[in-house]
Amino acid sequence: MNTTLERIAVPVLALLASAVLFGLLLAFYAHVDPLEAFGLMYEGAFGSWFSWQNTLTRAAPLILTALCTALPARLGLVIIGNEGVLVVGGVTAAAAGIAVAGAPPLVVQLVMAIAGMAAGGLWIAFAGALRQYRGVNETISSLLLTYIAIALMNHFVEGPLRDPSSLNKPSTWPIGDANMIGTIPGTDVHWGLVFGLVACLLCYLFQRFTTWGFAMEVIGGNPKTARMMGLNVGRYVLLACGAGGAAAGLAGMVEVAAIQGRANASLAVGYGYSGILVSFLARHHPLAIVPVSILLGGIGASGGLLQRRLDLPDAAVVVLQGIIFVAILASETLYGRLLKPKEVA
């Protein structure tokens, strides 16, 4: 059986099915021409160089936050605290950047990246450790930690770390224009995209070609066997959680160092939650995370055009996302059955 063809055909079928469902909703409830809507979405997401850059900019943070779910998932852990990690990473990176603001830009950026990754890594490693050594369910603890992270951020940003001149948008002091990491030459897209691509590639190589990566697969497949083989499960849990957290922490650092220039409540705008979706849709495969993030970024980029040209509410895009996700997830059942003539009919 041609599995490559299947791997493309199944998601495409799912996308088509979602388009039909969404089109029906548009045509019969909103009285909008679905073809016009899809044309606009294409225009807004991929129709021009500007649209492509818009899409890639939106995809960048998702690639990094998705890894926070994807890496621990390798061991069978379900981490959904990505949003909190991004927040923690962003605030820590900003604080570190401010502390060393006088140093050469490269040093400041490096310190910020290390601080953000370390904070994020520890944050999720904590959830992993609770799971491993106290038996606390990591899904709920990472979710709780997200709410705690956001409260801490608000406390620091509006209290001890607040720059009084940030007035109506309480923020930390700026890290300084000279210390910003800027955009990829010739584009509008910041370096966070490259960080994400490199991180995904590294994770893939690690999982595919190293003994540790293989050990993780064994643990994910069957923890009891792994223990019998003498694998130190705890160490791998901490490693996977720490690495995933570091990726999302880096996403927070990028938000501060490439976009906002300071840390504030705009760190918590949902990149983390979207990252969970990306990871599940990509079936936690590091390389699949990239196209899924771009798809999601494209939907986000085109949403504005639907609002402006067709007078659709913002929620229309959320509905479409929901339909696409459910359809793609449901379509997994078709693998191995699609090309049998009986099943297709």
């Binding site: 599940f280 509410p313 895009v317 996700f325």
Partner: peptide, 19 residues
């Protein structure tokens, strides 16, 4: 996968309700 489908359904329900 029911965890993932649930997250998708969360998005779908929220979006549909707002819409």
């Amino acid at each position: 996968n029911d965890v993932a489908t649930g997250i998708g359904m969360m998005l779908f329900g929220t979006g549909l309700a707002f819409f």
